[in-house]
Amino acid sequence: MNIFRLAGDMTHLISVLVLLLKIYATKSCSGISLKTQELYAMVFLARYLDLFSDFISLYNTVMKLVFIGSSLAIVWCMRYHRVVRRSYDRELDTFRYWILVGACFTLALVLHEKFSFQEVFWAFSIYLEAVAILPQLVLLQRSGNVDNLTGQYVFFLGAYRAFYILNWIYRYLTEPRFTRWISCVSGLVQTALYADFFYYYFISWKNNAKLQLPA
């Protein structure tokens, strides 16, 4: 564990907590893409198949349970909670993500570290996470004004993978046999997808204005 990875995990945790706060405090999920939440639930379920088979550390196991539990809870809340579900932007959140799921799974069947059930699903989860934010970014552009908590949620979600890139550079420089091309390349693509959001987020922060994404 290094400081970059810890910062990344904490930033990721903060993004989940901000989202839970937004839904719990405002009893609303307006501006949040259910499709991105469902993609993230798939990402965690596919990536943490080793949850019960490999014990790495208490921290690792607890964080995996937190990420799986929170993503499923948010999906359940947005689908079935009688108050929250009413504020879901159903007609704006129309990204056909099964194309993304199919493409990522096909890529994982071709490009993986080892051809085993767990490894293919792990590679699938890495590729899927890289594009999971797309429905959310599309929804933000369509829904115009973005409330603060939603903007902060997307910001922290993007920032965590940027910390992970620093972690991979650090591990590459300090650990003799560390190579993790699948994670690194996907992580770069993932962070790059946030580039324009980060730009508009910085502008809104600098001008102390509402976050506006161009349509």
């Binding site: 990875r5 080793d50 490999d54 690792n60 990420f67």
Partner: peptide, 10 residues
């Protein structure tokens, strides 16, 4: 220590 399939990250 090398983990079962090197996945010690979240």
């Amino acid at each position: 220590v090398e983990f079962s399939h090197g996945k010690d990250e979240l």
